[in-house]
């Protein structure tokens, strides 16, 4: 289901960080998609989202956005449009396999575990003619079992540290 709230949740931002847009269309003037002769206005994209219109998978911004962040750096309000675009992609389920694998790896181990990413995105890599890089991948991946990284929970660790200090004194 694609609702504005859902997308904002996926993007990891509050809606007001995006709805502050004042419609200056600076983002459109620097957007690299427009180099492809596709007339795309990221501001219109945001507006559609806030008016509750559904954004389809063939929207040029969804298809071609490279997350270069040129729009975000030129925007007077520094609105991070690529992050919304990625959230829309996620909600539509049209992320590339690499992207899915990357995120999943973060979910499981809290870090990027390269062999996992390579294996998960293998279909794309094989069909995309990247097979000639196979020796390089093997070199990267090596063969080792993944070690789990302990996630740092700041509040928890802080409490622990302070209590031990008190104990010592």
């Amino acid at each position: 289901m694609q609702t504005t709230d859902h997308i904002m949740e996926l993007a990891g931002h509050r809606q007001e960080d995006f709805s502050v847009c004042m419609g200056c269309k600076v983002c459109a003037s620097v957007c690299t998609i427009n180099d492809l002769d596709i007339d795309m206005n990221p501001q219109e994209f945001l507006l559609k989202l806030f008016m509750g219109e559904e954004i389809k998978a063939d929207n040029p911004l969804v298809r071609y956005c490279t997350s270069c962040y040129r729009c975000a750096s030129a925007c007077p309000w520094q609105i991070r449009i690529p992050e919304v675009v990625r959230a829309v992609k996620e909600s539509l389920g049209i992320e590339a396999r690499f992207e899915k694998a990357f995120k999943k790896s973060l979910d499981i181990w809290g870090r990027v575990y390269e062999p996992f990413v390579v294996i998960m995105s293998a279909p794309d890599l094989l069909m995309g003619g990247y097979i000639k890089f196979l020796p390089k991948w093997m070199e990267y991946a090596g063969f080792h079992f993944p070690h789990k990284v302990k996630r740092i929970r700041t509040s928890h660790t802080l409490k622990k540290g302070s209590s031990s200090k008190e104990g010592r004194s």
Binding site: Q15, E16, S19, V20, C21, G23, F50, M51
Partner: peptide
């Protein structure tokens, strides 16, 4: 005006 936009008033130019 900024607060209005943040609160969800949709501004169309």
């Amino acid at each position: 005006y900024e607060e209005a936009r943040r609160e969800g008033v949709i501004a169309i130019h």
